[in-house]
Structure formats: C-alpha cells, structure tokens
Nucleic acid binder design. Structure first.
Lengths: 185, 185, 185, 185
DNA sequence: TATGAATGAGCTTTCATTCAT
DNA sequence: TATGAATGAAAGCTCATTCAT
C-alpha cells in the first residue's frame, strides 16, 4: 500500500505521522495541522497531499498506534504467560496512554469524528485471544466478555490522563479492575 | 458571590449556565460560545460579561454539575444504606455521564484547560464519606483509597460515551469494578 | 430589510458593497474577498458577517448594479421618447459595462455560480416595457422578442470588454444591432 | 517549431492540447491544470514542460481553436457563396461556442490574462476576406468594418452561453445582427 | 448592564509551479 | 524526457474576544 510511494514520499509520510503522533500526544487532537507540518519540517501542502483531511491524519495516527499495540498483544499471546498476559497487556496500554494523550483520547472516541470503528477492531482480535487464554487459565471469570474489557481499557486509559496519576495510583486502580475480573467472589 | 448582582443579571447568569450545560452536553466542550448564547436567548456580549473566557464558562458549568452530584452524594450519605451507597452513587454518576457528554469530558480533564482541580475537590469530600462508610460496613476493602475510586469513576464515565455502551454492558462493567472493591480475594 | 441593522452595521454593509463593486469591476469576479475587505477598510470577518459566502457577496453586488440599471430604465420609460428609449437604455448599459467589468461578467453568467436568475429578472420587466413602447412607436419590428434583446445586451456588454473597444467601435457595433431591430427590410 | 521535438514528445503535446480543449470546454478556463493532465493521462510535470504556464496552455488551446475556425473560414472563402459566406461562418462560430465554453470565453478575453491579441489576429484575415466578398456581393453595407464584426462575433458567442439559449433564440438573435448588416435602411 | 457588530488570528484546503528522481 | 511529490502562497471561512452603541 505504501510500497508504491517514492522513497522521499514514504520518508515524508513517516515524518508526518511521527510528528502528528508527537503533536497530538502533547496538545490533544485539537492541535493544528500546521503545527504538525512544522514539526515534520514539511510544507503544509505536503501534509494534505498525504492526508487530504485533518480527520484522515488523525485516523492514520490512531491506526498506527493501535497497530503497535495490537502487535504487542500478539507477542504476549505467543510468548507470555496465559494466566497474566491479559493483565500485562492492559497495564501496558494504560502506561502508554499516560505518556501519549492521543491513545486515550482516541480509544475513548475522542470528540473528533474519526471513524475509530475500523482501527479499534484491530485491537479486538488480539485482546479476545488474551481474554480466552486467561479464562482457560482460570485467572478471569468465565462470564467476562470482550466488550467490558475494552470499555474498562478505554476508561482506565482516560483516567491515566488525570492530573494526579502516579505509578502508585495506577497500581491501585488496576488492582481493583484485575481483582474484579478474577473468579470466586 | 452572586448575591451582589442585579436581579436581571443573576437571572441571565442562570440562563447562560443552563444553556451551556445543555449545549456542551450535546456537542461537547468544543461547541461554540455563540451557540450557548443563542440557546440562552442572550447576546454573545452578555455571555462574556458573566464569563470573561470560554474556559470560565466551562469551569462554571462543571462546578454546577459537580455541586449537583455532591449534593446527591450527601443525600445518599445521610439516607442511604452505607453498605451500598458508594456503589449506588458511582452508578448514578456513570448514568448521568452517558446522558451528558460534559460530565464525562470534564471529569476526565476534557482536553480543555479547565482547572478542574478546584471543582473536582467538591466531589472528594462526600465521596470520601461514602467510601469510609462502605469500608466500615465491610463492602469495600480497607486499603482502597479515595483517589483510585475517583480515577475509576472518571474512567468509567468516559467509557459510558463509547458507541456500543448499553445498559447491559454498563452492568457488566460496573460489576467488575464493584467486585474488585470487595474484600476477601 | 436592512432597516433593522445598527447604524454602523448598515454603514459597513454599504462600504463593503461599494468596495466590492469597485474591486470586482477592476479585477473581475475572481478578485479576492480579502481585497474587498481591505478596500472597504474593514476586517475580513466583517465581510463574512454580512455576506456569509463569496457568492452572496457577488450576488448582492450584482443585485445592486441591476437595481440601478432597472431604475434608469424606469426613468426612461416615464420620461424618455418611446421611439428611442430602448436604444438609449441599451447604449447606457453597454457604456457602463465598458467601465465596470462586473456588469458584463455577471450579465453573461460569469463563470461564477451566482444565481443570476433572480436578479436578472429585475431587468426584464423594465426592458419589456421599453421594448413594447418602441414597437408601438414603430421603431422596432413587431416580431422582436424580449429574450433576443436581452441576449444581444448581454453579448454586447461582453464585447465592450474587448481590448480594442473605443467609442467609435461602440457606435458602429450598436448601429448594426439597432438597424437590425428596425422594421421594413 | 514542433518539428524538433522527439516523436513521443510531440505525441504528448498533442494529447495535452486535446485534453485541455475538452476540459476547458467543459469547466471553463478556471479548470485546474491537474485535471487536464489527468485527462491527457500524463503527469502534471509533463504539462508544464510543454506549457510553462497555465496561461501558455490556455493560449495554445485558443490558438488551436482559432486555427480551426480560420481554416473553415478559408474554405468558405474559396467554395462558398460570397453573398452568404460571412453569415454562414458567423453562425458556425456561434454554434461551436454554444458547445464549447472556451471558444466564447476566450474570444471575449475570458477573465484570464491570455494575450489573445496574437491568436485572434489569425481570425481577422479570413474574416476580412469574407467581409469584403459580402460587401462586393452587396449583402453587407459598405461602411461596416472588420472590428465591429469581430465585436459582434465575440459578443454573440458569449450570449450563446446564456442559460436560455435555444436554436430558436439563436436564429432570432442572428437575424437582427445580419439584418443590421444589410444595406438599404 | 445588555447588545450584537467588528476584529483578526488561525484553520483547512486548493492549485500553479518547481524540482528531485 | 517523463514522473509525480513537494512547495507555499493564497483563498474562503470560523470563532473567541473586544468594544461602540
């Protein structure tokens, strides 16, 4: 898909996406496209050649983030301990959200009219696997379903943006959620 | 504070806040000030006389919402069953968030630079009371602290804005959180 | 309609229209709205408050021009010699077109998507009167119809923009058209 | 002039001109160069290699159209009835204008700063011949000069773009012009 | 004090033109 | 020579904020 681009075009596309990620992480999705262009050291027209609309840019940035997360989930699926991989992944996503505002904003629908539907679905599959494994390992109740896990993930991800968020608070918050997922009581 | 205002001025202030609540609930915090003025049937200048900045308007709207919530919490403190009052209140807030986008947006910091610090503190006190009572009643673990309850509240409140949010999903999500708060395992 | 505007608003509206007429007359309909604002010594936002779209501005400018022309036609209807009033008016319009590019551009449909339909109709009525009078006076053939007069007017108006257009050329051009309208051979 | 070009270069030049004619005919002179490139199935850079400026492209397109018209005029000069050839040609040009927006737009100077001077002169010579013949044949008044014929042609050509233009309207419009050219009253 | 017009910076988007590949 | 990505100067338009009435 991006393989047909000329070398410099692909390079610019990458620069723009990286810049977008940084800018949106810092100032949220309402940051200006112009700032993204500046950070990428590219003219404004170049941004619009690659992403005809600000929404397209946001969408691509989100897709990139989710792809990265999905990959991490897949790795955990393959190599991690089934009993804890779901929790590990959950914690990882929350951790990243604390660092990058966009993750949280977009996981939660973001106010912006990004059709998150599609990209978010990328996360569902690996997450479903992790959930099933955890249930088979007996660390998560049988009746827990994928959608509430995603809802809790989206929610905690937002919480991670709160002003008082610290590693300690994070641990205590996650503990409640993880405990709530465990069987027996 | 508002006592020094002329009668009509106070009336306008009220109209504007009510309109702001409705507009921000519908279109999020990015809705235009002009639309608030229109809904309040007031000229734009009047809005800015009462709230010199859009942020001030958002802040006041938030304060109003939180005051209402704090009051409900207080009532539950006095009249409700200590064992369940915290959970009841938590669910109430989430419910309201599902209906009013602002509650969620602002509880979570909302992208907008509202100094939520102050207003949010209003919720802390009654929530702390509810938490203590629940712990005394033995329905919440002793080591659960106020800040994680607030974080979970803010987070779930955001989750309630997700596209797939249904009463059923809400119940399953809350169940995990509430179970996670319970003592013993 | 414009009567409800505040004094300064009406003044600005007038300034803007006058500026628009001048600017469009000079550089054609493709002139920038910003230049109109500059000429009117008004901020760009003010132009858009009065005319939400560039098309609206063009439309209003055209309407203004046509109203003026229609008025002249009406005066000629009342006071002029029926035998020559049509020709006099025709020549006047052409004369104005030579001075103001917009008249011609817009009479001819102008490339721009101005809904000329409406405003142009304003010219039809007085022109129809002049035509009828001329036919009654015997200076125009009975079977000449309004639409070809308008077509010739629009066309000549365009011709008046040609680089070589001089008073002499104008007279010779109009002579052909007027002669062609006369009865008997 | 085009003889020094490589075969494929000449072929491209042709394709571009053909595309430009089609595109400008459809959307007027404000159509984008990119669209011309697309229609010619050529990269945008190629268009600019052949025509360094959009104006150059418009000019070349116009020249091509006028050459074609001039040729038709020449044919009529040689083979047609001198008494009617001028009128026939006039009607032909108007007919073509109705079909191709560019003819009209460019004959009239077109808003765009094409130096029509040069290309238009190509039409003058054959038109002058037709005019002289008609005058010799006695169908056109002796004192009619070339420039007013050209002005009328440019004007009618514009009128042919009007919304209500029909074959019937065209005939009535041309009749007035042609009658106006005839000698004797 | 209320009004609502004016301001003007900033946003997204388009397009003729340039230039590395 | 052809390609098509990059450029960057506008353009049209929005909106928080100011200020004359």
């Amino acid at each position: 898909m991006t393989g047909k681009l000329r070398a410099d075009a692909r390079r610019n596309r990458e620069r723009i996406l990286a810049a977008a990620e940084a800018v949106f992480a810092e100032h949220g999705a309402s940051a200006s496209t112009e700032e993204v262009a500046a950070r990428a050291e590219v003219a404004i027209g170049t941004v619009f050649r690659h992403f005809p609309t600000k929404n397209d840019l946001l969408g691509a940035t989100l897709k990139r983030l989710l792809d990265r997360l999905a990959e991490e989930a897949a790795v955990l699926s393959d190599e991690g301990d089934p009993a804890t991989a779901l929790f590990t992944f959950f914690a990882q996503v929350v951790e990243e959200a604390a660092a990058r505002r966009t993750v949280a904003e977009l996981l939660a629908g973001g106010g912006v009219d990004v059709r998150v539907g599609k990209p978010l679905r990328r996360l569902e599959e690996p997450l479903a696997t992790l959930l099933t494994r955890a249930q088979q390992a007996g660390t998560v109740r049988e009746d827990v379903r994928l959608d509430e896990v995603m809802a809790l993930l989206a929610g905690t991800t937002q919480a991670a943006l709160l002003t008082g968020w610290t590693p300690d608070l994070r641990d205590r918050t996650l503990r409640i959620i993880f405990d709530g997922c465990r069987p027996g009581r």
